[in-house]
């Protein structure tokens, strides 16, 4: 028996910004796969290339950014995200929700009208039936008195309610893959938890795979089964959540964990990664992008790009110190 084709597979993805020929690589050699119904997290600090990766997959890269290499396949079928067929695929097979629901909702259309439009875009439902379906969708995302709320304007909804509407819209056509780019970053923690549980539950019901972008490792731990750690547009470490967060191998993953204050015990000082995640080298520059901030960096880290290699069962990472060495030592 062969394993079912992954809901999404990404190989050798590169994204550059700026004029062709003089552009700058912001995503380099990103590769991962999500099995049907799987839940993958992409984590990393600001500017690490999380959104660019997601937007490339959804075919929504902003002007001035373009995919320069790599292959993207949905359910085993290779797609061209920049091609003309993508609009049909988006909304039906892939759906995306963003951090700021206000910017994604049309402020001059009622919530109901927008839902009806989304429903009818990919199905032949009558306006009346679509309106009934829209009310069902609001109920599914736990908005009280859904039928009445169809006539509300986006500004009459709280941030959490708007994000619920976006989720309802994204899941209208039971996509095989839901991409959520920091869907709860702008919300209160208690609302965050409700929204993440909602996304989680609906994805399970519909059998949708989830690609969740976040910078909170607690969210990764609570809601995902595999994780990709990005820095400077490149993959630092990837694997099952329990393995990567339970025993991080890569110095960046380790640094990221140590830098976060714990909730369940007192610590006197935090152990921050020095410097800031700004002005990382281009994603195709030689060397390790983390070298300027890494306490373990050696001379070769600045000139030789570390290979992507296994670092334990199902875990892989890119760090020179993870290379098997005859003298022992290293990080693994």
């Amino acid at each position: 028996m062969t394993a079912p084709a992954p809901a999404l597979s990404v190989e050798g993805l590169r994204v550059a910004v700026g004029p062709p020929g003089r552009g700058r690589a912001v995503v380099g050699d990103v590769a991962f796969a999500i099995p049907p119904g799987g839940r993958l997290a992409i984590v990393g600090e600001s500017g690490s290339g999380k959104s660019m990766t997601a937007l490339a997959v959804a075919g929504l890269l902003p002007r001035g950014a373009r995919q320069t290499a790599g292959q993207i396949a949905l359910g085993g079928r290779i797609v061209d995200p920049a091609g003309p067929g993508m609009a049909r695929i988006r909304g039906r097979e892939i759906a995306m929700i963003f951090q700021d629901p206000m910017s994604a909702l049309n402020p001059v259309m009622t919530v109901g009208a927008q839902l009806v439009e989304a429903i009818r875009a990919h199905s032949a439902m009558s306006p009346r039936a679509a309106r009934a379906r829209a009310a069902e969708m609001l109920a599914a995302v736990q908005i009280p008195r859904p039928a009445e709320r169809l006539d509300a304007w986006p500004h009459e909804f709280s941030g959490g309610m708007r994000q619920r509407v976006m989720i309802a819209m994204a899941l209208t056509h039971r996509p095989k893959l839901l991409i959520a780019d920091e869907p709860t970053t702008a919300l209160d923690v208690t609302t965050q938890l409700q929204i993440l549980r909602l996304i989680d539950g609906l994805c399970r019901e519909e059998g949708s795979a989830l690609m969740l972008i976040t910078h909170d490792l607690g969210i990764v731990e609570g809601f995902c089964d595999s994780v990709v750690v990005l820095y400077g547009g490149r993959m630092m470490e990837a694997g099952p959540v329990a393995a990567v967060l339970g025993r991080p191998r890569h110095p960046y993953t380790r640094g990221l964990m140590a830098t976060i204050p714990p909730l369940d015990r007192d610590v006197d000082w935090l152990d921050p990664i020095p410097g800031e995640p700004v002005a990382t080298p281009a994603a195709d520059a030689p060397g390790c992008p983390f070298a300027p901030r890494c306490g373990l960096a050696e001379a070769r880290c600045r000139t030789v790009t570390p290979a992507w290699r296994p670092a334990g069962s199902k875990v892989a990472a890119s760090c020179h110190l993870l290379a098997p060495s005859p003298a022992g030592g290293g990080l693994s």
Binding site: D188, T190, L193, L217, I219, G246, M257, P262, D264
Partner: peptide
């Protein structure tokens, strides 16, 4: 934090795990 009395404090603590360091770290 360790012996919250009010239900709202408990809800905040549960939700705060989303932003905190995972148990392994």
């Amino acid at each position: 934090l360790d012996r919250p009395q009010h239900p709202y404090t408990r809800a905040l603590i549960e939700a705060a795990r989303l932003r905190a360091r995972p148990a392994g770290g």
